[in-house]
């Protein structure tokens, strides 16, 4: 037996199961082959270990208990991982089908444009506490807007009885109540007055405010106040034309007007004086801001 064949007997040496013939063949081969001798000498450590009955018994016990091999599909961690992956893939596919544009990367877009405001509503100032029977109405004209054939005020819905009634109306309030109209007006002012600087200055100045009341004879009376930095004009329009109620180019102040009380008024406020305010347009763009003030109506109650 050569060394290669005898090498197969090495495993039997430590456990002592070799027959006498096998032992003789193995040792003879070891004496004639250094590698086999070295391997056999190394095997002595195992042989010495297995020669101890206590050690042998312990090894036997370890070999009797078969190591528990749990299939991967019955391991909780594997099941959890598989379920998580399944849910993630399912959710991704569902989202992709429902909102494909949200899944895909969005292309870069310019800054969002502000949405158009809702249709303009008539701003209805409530009567002051001093004269509860009078309705105060102000409407900001849009520019451009359809040309009015008649200057008679359009019918407006009555104000809700439970709504709070402001004591006075103002251009700011009108602008706040109709932001879309305010933007249009500002846009118009910029375009006609020839620059954003004027509009900025106009916006910075104190906007006019007005109140309706009655004089001693019971005639309607309009009181307008305005701050510096603007020029105010008040026109009463009828089928015969426009009548300037004034003031013309006061820089700041407070004036009381006595309009007819039945015709609508146009309040102009610009950052530059106007030489012929009677020619200020009733419709279309104006150099500044225009507010239509409806005449007061008697409270039916």
């Amino acid at each position: 037996m050569n060394a290669r064949e005898a090498e197969k007997l090495l495993g039997g040496y430590a456990t002592g199961i070799l027959t006498e013939a096998e032992r003789s063949a193995l040792f003879a081969a070891a004496l004639s082959d250094q590698d086999l001798f070295d391997a056999l000498a190394d095997e002595e450590a195992l042989r010495e270990l297995l020669s101890d009955p206590a050690m042998k018994a312990r090894l036997m016990a370890a070999l009797e208990t078969k190591p528990k091999v749990i299939p991967f599909w019955r391991r909780p961690s594997s099941m959890t991982l598989a379920a998580s992956l399944l849910v993630a893939i399912g959710a991704t596919l569902m989202l992709k089908r429902q909102h494909p544009e949200e899944i895909l990367p969005k292309p870069s877009r310019p800054a969002p444009v502000m949405e158009a405001a809702p249709p303009p509503k008539a701003t209805v100032p409530e009567p002051a506490k001093a004269s509860p029977k009078v309705d105060f109405r102000a409407r900001v004209d849009k520019a451009p807007a359809p040309v009015e054939k008649k200057l008679a005020p359009p019918p407006l819905p009555p104000p809700p009885p439970s709504a709070p009634a402001p004591a006075e109306a103002s251009l700011d309030a009108a602008m706040v109540q109709a932001p879309a109209e305010r933007r249009e007006s500002n846009k118009t002012a910029q375009g006609v007055a020839g620059g954003a600087v004027g509009a900025f200055m106009l916006a910075r100045s104190k906007a006019p405010t007005w109140t309706w009341d009655k004089d001693a004879t019971g005639h309607p009376r309009l009181t307008v106040s305005w701050g510096p930095g603007g020029h105010l004009y008040l026109l009463e329009r009828s089928v015969d034309g426009a009548r300037v109620l004034g003031p013309t180019s006061e820089s700041e102040g407070r004036s009381v007007f006595s309009p007819s009380g039945t015709l609508p008024l146009d309040l102009y406020w610009s950052n530059a004086p106007v030489s012929h305010p009677e020619n200020l347009p009733a419709e279309g763009p104006v150099a500044g801001t225009r507010v239509r003030i409806q005449p007061p109506q008697e409270n039916p109650r």
């Binding site: 037996m1 050569n2 005898a6 013939a21 096998e22 003789s24 063949a25 040792f27 003879a28 081969a29 070891a30 004496l31 004639s32 250094q34 001798f37 070295d38 000498a41």
Partner: peptide
């Protein structure tokens, strides 16, 4: 299973054994 050619006699066996031990 025939044993490989082996040294016969104690002295010869120990002599071979000594050589293997030295190398090991």
């Amino acid at each position: 299973m025939e044993p490989a050619s082996q040294p016969t006699g104690r002295a010869a066996i120990l002599s071979t054994l000594r050589e293997r031990i030295v190398a090991y």
